[in-house]
Amino acid sequence: EIDLEAVKDLGLGFVRRPTGGRGVLHEHELTYSVIVSEEHPEMPKTVTEAYRVISEGILKGFHQLGLEAYFAVPRTDEERSALKNPRSAVCFDAPSWYELVVEGRKVAGSAQTRQKGVILQHGSILLDIDEDKLFRLFKYPNERVKERMKSAFKNKAVAINEISSRRITLDEAKEAFYKGFAEGLNIELETYQLTEEELAYVNKIAKERYENDEWNYK
Rank of each mutant, 00 (worst) to 15 (best):
E56V: 00
L65M: 07
I58T: 11
V36H: 05
K45Q: 11
P74I: 12
A69G: 13
R52C: 02
V47A: 08
K45D: 08
S55R: 00
P41A: 07
P74Y: 11
P41V: 10
A50S: 14
R52I: 03
Y70K: 10
H40G: 08
E68G: 01
S37T: 06
E38Y: 13
H40D: 15
D77R: 13
G57Q: 06
T76L: 14
M43D: 02
V34H: 01
V36M: 15
P44F: 05
H40R: 04
I58Q: 00
V36A: 11
P44W: 06
P41T: 09
A69W: 07
M43I: 15
Y51E: 06
T46Y: 06
V53W: 15
V73S: 05
P41Q: 12
F71C: 05
R52K: 15
V34P: 01
V47K: 08
M43L: 14
V47W: 07
S37V: 07
H40K: 02
L65C: 02
A69T: 06
E38N: 12
E42P: 00
Y51P: 01
E78V: 12
E56P: 01
T76G: 13
M43W: 11
A72N: 15
R52G: 00
P74M: 12
L67Q: 09
Q64I: 00
F62T: 01
E39H: 12
L59N: 01
A69S: 15
T48Y: 07
L59G: 00
V47H: 05
I58R: 00
H63M: 10
Y51W: 10
A72I: 01
A69Q: 12
E42R: 05
V36P: 05
S55P: 00
Y51K: 04
E78N: 09
G66I: 08
H63G: 06
T46V: 04
T76H: 13
E42M: 14
H63P: 02
V47E: 11
E39N: 15
E49I: 02
I54G: 03
I58H: 01
G66Y: 10
E78G: 00
L65K: 03
V34L: 10
G61L: 05
S55N: 13
L65N: 03
I54L: 15
I58G: 04
A69N: 05
E79S: 04
T48N: 07
E68Q: 13
T46E: 14
Y51V: 06
L67K: 04
A69H: 06
P44S: 06
E79L: 04
I35D: 08
F71G: 02
V73Q: 08
V47Y: 09
E78C: 01
E79D: 13
T46C: 03
I58F: 03
A72K: 05
V34W: 05
E56K: 09
I54Q: 03
E78H: 06
R75D: 12
R52H: 11
E49N: 04
G57K: 03
A72D: 13
D77K: 15
D77P: 15
E56R: 10
Y70H: 12
V34F: 08
I58L: 12
T46N: 04
P41F: 14
I54W: 07
S55W: 02
M43F: 11
E39F: 14
S37A: 11
E78T: 07
D77E: 15
I58N: 02
I54T: 03
Y70N: 11
P74E: 12
S33I: 10
V53R: 07
